[in-house]
């Protein structure tokens, strides 16, 4: 499916969709959204790019195998749960929050990092499965 229109469009769509996915990820705390949907949208962005430009180009763009996102995300989620245990002597996965919310991002807490971990894992899983299947089909 290498049409020039889609290819050109996908080059602009990729960053926009990624930005949108991060927006969805961050707004999840107050409004519909969250890490899971955000991760799916980000993966759709990459899949779209792969459809338009071929898998090789997308992989080149990514620089590393999307599978690495899974351990990174799992580690981030796990560590955000572990932080209260190690740092504050609270049970595993207690939510900790900064007192003052940051501009744009909103309030910062362990739950946010947990959600970012989910975002990364979902992205890693989806892309790994789709890339693997499309390579060997």
């Amino acid at each position: 499916m290498k049409t020039i229109i889609l290819r050109t469009a996908s080059n602009y769509l990729l960053p926009i969709l990624l930005l949108f996915s991060i927006f969805i990820l961050l707004r999840g705390h107050y409004l519909p959204g969250g890490g899971f949907v955000g991760g799916l949208i980000a993966s759709i962005a990459f899949v779209l790019h792969a459809f338009a430009n071929g898998l090789k180009d997308t992989k080149k763009l990514l620089k590393f195998h999307p599978g690495y996102l899974m351990p990174a995300g799992l580690a981030l989620s796990f560590l955000s749960g572990l932080l209260p245990v190690v740092g504050f002597d609270e049970p595993f996965m207690t939510g900790l929050w900064l007192h003052h919310p940051l501009p744009v991002i909103g309030s910062i807490g362990t739950a946010l990092f947990f959600d970012i971990g989910v975002y990364l894992v979902v992205q890693g899983v989806t892309l790994t499965i789709i890339f693997t299947i499309s390579e060997s089909a």
Binding site: G28, L31, G33, G34, G35, A111, D115
Partner: peptide, 13 residues
């Protein structure tokens, strides 16, 4: 849990 989106708060917290 400092969140207004109950669905997401349940998921992450």
């Amino acid at each position: 849990a400092h969140g207004k989106n109950v669905v997401n708060v349940i998921l992450v917290d």
